[in-house]
């Protein structure tokens, strides 16, 4: 069968191309617009007089002698100390991903290799935990954390995020390890390895694609979390997302919305780069659970 038969008629082809273009504009335009606008002053970003001001930066030019200004970034990073939030986010993400993956690979491997019935129940419990909105657990954390003086610090948040991450990590790595043939580690055991040695010398060298994919999603969860980080971190330990939310409370009244705009752009930039480099892994991770049906 030639590819010709699958070819679309011109009208349909035009229509579907037009649709893709419209979707691309809907998906990408808001980000480009905000990126462009973050270098303007507020009167241009929210222009009552003429929307084109946001493009040309007419008022920014009047005020700064150039259509671009870094004032928003200066205000957010230096004046409001957004850099502190960036460092906090980096710490939280790094440790959350590292610990989640360590726990998750051990657990996921065990679940994929055990043939007893309790593995099923453990996975079901993990699924139930996965479905629960994290904010419903926060009321349970606050009292003991206050009591034991654990509230507000980064390690507490990291371990909570690790725990919230576990159900998802377990499911993902479990299905990944199931695809690695059992014969591989069984033959190692025949050769006299213990289960852990088999894991260490046979499984670890071949597990990296699955671990990287899972790690990406753990990272996104920690990076994007708002419910837990905003409730469990004190003001000076805030990560980026709650910090941006706190900008809205304080700066909107002062007329410094541009700080928040600059902060939003700064927080989105790493995600852009992440998608650019790991697009293939993200797509395969999203579809992994699905294609199994």
């Amino acid at each position: 069968m030639s590819a010709k038969a699958f070819k679309q008629p011109p009208a349909l082809r035009t229509f579907s191309s037009a649709f893709v273009i419209v979707w691309l504009v809907i998906a990408a335009f808001p980000f480009l617009w905000t990126l462009w606008g973050s270098f303007k002053i507020e009167l241009d970003f929210f222009s009552k007089a003429d929307w084109q001001n946001a493009l040309t930066g007419a008022r920014t030019f009047l005020e700064h002698g150039s259509p671009f200004t870094g004032d928003g970034y200066q205000g957010a990073w230096v004046q409001e100390e957004f850099w502190q939030a960036v460092i906090n986010t980096a710490i939280v993400c790094f440790f959350t991903v590292a610990i989640s993956l360590t726990f998750g690979t051990l657990g996921g491997y065990a679940l994929s290799r055990s043939t007893y019935r309790y593995t099923f129940w453990l996975l079901i419990i993990a699924l139930i935990f996965r479905a629960m909105p994290p904010i419903t657990l926060v009321a349970g954390y606050l009292l003991p954390f206050f009591e034991w003086n654990l509230w507000g610090i980064l390690p507490t948040t990291i371990i909570v995020l690790v725990a919230i991450n576990q159900p998802f990590t377990l499911w993902m790595l479990h299905s990944f390890f199931q695809k690695i043939p059992k014969e591989l580690d069984e033959s190692a055991k025949v050769d006299g390895c213990t289960q852990f040695q088999a894991f260490r010398h046979v499984i670890i060298p071949v597990m990296w694609p699955g671990v990287i994919t899972t790690g990406l999603f753990s990272f996104l969860l920690a990076y994007n979390d708002f419910a837990v980080t905003s409730m469990l971190l004190s003001k000076e330990n805030q990560t980026m997302v709650p910090k941006i939310a706190s900008f809205l409370g304080t700066t909107q009244t002062e007329g410094n919305v541009m700080f928040a705009v600059a902060a939003v752009v700064s927080a989105t930039a790493p995600l852009f780069i992440l998608v650019m480099f790991f697009q293939r892994q993200i797509v395969s991770g999203l579809t992994q659970g699905a294609v199994k049906g």
Binding site: F31, F226, I244, A267, F272, Q279, V283
Partner: peptide, 12 residues
């Protein structure tokens, strides 16, 4: 470009 709306934090 399609992944962007999904990947950014919902708040952002």
């Amino acid at each position: 470009f399609s992944l962007l709306p999904m990947i950014v934090s919902p708040l952002i």
